[in-house]
Design a protein around this nucleic acid. Structure first.
Lengths: 353, 353
DNA sequence: GATTAGCACTCGCTGTCAATGAGTGCTAAC
DNA sequence: GTTAGCACTCATTGACAGCGAGTGCTAATC
């Protein structure tokens, strides 16, 4: 029989709740005693045996209680667990973090990420997005010194990057201004991916009276700015939270976890595979495509601005995770950030050419 | 007798070398056998007893070998240890990290920091400096959008920060340019600490025809930029290295270490107390003023540009640290970074008013 | 027919105890 | 002054028994 009757569900939920709480294999007596289901341990035992047979539970060794399998957790997340609400205090915490309105996007995100790890007690990750689909808005070149200029690039998402470049000859402020207008005119509205630096150098030389070397310097500055936009930063918070969990009592386990956290590639991959749009993605143990984290659960979400993904934020922890709480937190934060972003900058339209 | 004869020195050095290598309390036989001093274990035993009495060694318990005390390490660092050179490979590694010439100072530093932790196998820290003694060079305000401006601040150390501000009315490009000139003229050469935002608002209103609200927005932008300059970032690399050391085999120990690393305040304090100028500072165990790290050793150095401290970089690890190697690395890196900085930007003079 | 009491069995965990061995301090001989 | 020798200390290890939480199975009960 494929269907799982209500009593089995109740018992499975009780087992997983208990295991999430204590990290101890759950025995039939515990369930019979604590959760007033009104059944004897023997009955529970039989049910547990069934649940194990169907793959929702596992037994670490013959004479111990059961622990949930990945499949068990999945079923729990999809159908069993009780939804959780954030406490007013937690909501307050999030709002305060957002209120700080820190200039740079990255800082805002890492702030929020810290709150997430504080609320959930897990390790949280946050990533700024891959911006290569966004669109350039304006380029400015300013004189700084007798031998230095500042190149500034602004994208339609409000991201500003700059690069200080040195050049043998610095054009007059006036001609730099003309150059800036020309660059903004030419590049404004172009998708970052489509910007060709070599073409740019050509154009600078033909459309202005820049000498070759200076043009190259400026182009390098622009290219450097674009690189900065492309680079997606990853922020980690609450890494030492894992020491609170008994499953990391052993040093090799802890080391393995930290090695994962220190491998940016893995982190990025985790975040990249975040949900397409909107919702919250829960990946439990072996559901993770990345083999290094097949013993962990990862919950991620993305926040958007004008339908453009502006980044993602998530939580990593043991498969025995308080999914209800984590999901509630991320859901709230997702909406809050998206709203906040919208408020910070109401952008004009201007899609890619 | 206060003086320590050469034989005692030899033995002490052998003991500390061995303990640094193995983390095992060192017995008299080990020293007699391995390091061809040509003395019997009994003799060594007597010497060790003396050294303990004088506070250079300690005994974890009655019938075990000796381990160095903080005082022992201090003596070792000051007088005993053999100087070490970096291998060509390591030098190569450092040069490559520097060669990447990453735009922002912070990124360069964190790169180098990563190499340090890689070479030394300890956890490395790097900090950008407190810049409030540096001097403002230029302020620029650019129009960005129908309701947004970009405020850019450049210091004499070549640090560039920007802030995107929204204002109800955006002055014409022309008047913004005039405003920029006026701001640069007024603030250029002023030490960041001495900039008073309220005065600035007044001046903006009297010297230009800005309305109150816009002036405040711009002043906020400048203030935000200054905050960014003041904020000294801390970078950590190689945190998971500590799992390689037997002294962190116990989870509480490891947790304690990570808690320290996650407390920015402690880190900053550690780095701040770096050496006044030039050299390398070694703080062993209880020599650390900060009680949380009295079980660790911290080695730090600073790198300079035009006699101005541009930041510090350091290593934290068990008191049983390979001081020779760490010092060699930091020394090399200190010089290399300072040289690199000088090369990147040869600054004009322009001291504080 | 489902539920439950009872029982034999499994197996990880804990505590005890003796053996081991690395190390010391001390004394007497070299 | 140096060293061989010896008695002593003490952390570590492994073996072993007892405990207890838990299971599966069977037979009695509702």
């Amino acid at each position: 029989m494929m269907l799982i009757d209500d009593r089995k569900k109740l018992i499975l939920k009780a087992i997983i709740d208990s295991y999430i709480d204590t990290a101890e294999p759950v025995g039939s007596r515990t369930i019979a005693r604590k959760h007033g289901i009104g059944l004897s341990s023997a009955t529970i035992r039989n049910e547990m045996s069934d649940l194990e047979e169907r793959g929702f539970l596992e037994q670490p060794h013959t004479s111990s209680g059961r622990i949930p399998s990945d499949k068990g957790y999945r079923f729990y997340v999809d159908q069993l667990m009780s939804k959780k609400e954030l406490t007013p205090r937690e909501i307050q915490q999030i709002k305060e973090a957002l209120k700080m309105r820190i200039g740079e996007l990255g800082q805002l995100i890492s702030q929020v990420s810290a709150v997430v790890s504080d609320i959930t007690k897990y390790t949280s990750m946050a990533m700024t997005p891959q911006m290569n689909k966004s669109v350039l808005k304006s380029v400015q070149v300013l004189p700084v010194d007798f031998d230095k200029m500042l190149v500034i690039v602004i994208t339609n998402a409000g991201v500003v990057k700059n690069s200080l470049v040195r050049a043998p000859v610095i054009p007059s402020p006036d001609s730099l201004q003309k150059l800036s207008s020309m660059l903004s005119l030419n590049l404004g509205g172009v998708m970052l991916d489509n910007i060709n630096i070599d073409d740019l150098i050509q154009k600078m030389k033909t459309e202005t009276n820049l000498d070759n070397e200076t043009a190259i310097c400026i182009a390098n500055g622009i290219s450097d700015c674009l690189c900065q936009v492309f680079a997606s930063d990853v922020y980690l918070e609450g890494t030492s939270n894992i020491f609170n969990f008994p499953e990391f009592r052993s040093v090799p386990k802890a080391k393995q976890f930290f090695d994962i956290l220190n491998t940016k590639k893995i982190l990025c991959a985790m975040m990249r595979m975040s949900v397409e749009n909107g919702g919250i993605k829960v990946r439990i143990g072996t559901e993770n495509e990345i083999k290094e984290i097949k013993d962990y659960s990862v919950v991620t979400t993305t926040y958007v601005l004008n339908d453009q993904i502006m980044g993602s934020i998530g939580v990593i922890g043991p498969t025995r995770m308080e999914y209800a709480k984590v999901i509630a937190s991320l859901n709230y934060i997702r909406k809050a950030i998206s709203k906040e972003l919208m408020q910070i900058m109401e952008l004009g339209p201007g899609g890619p050419r």
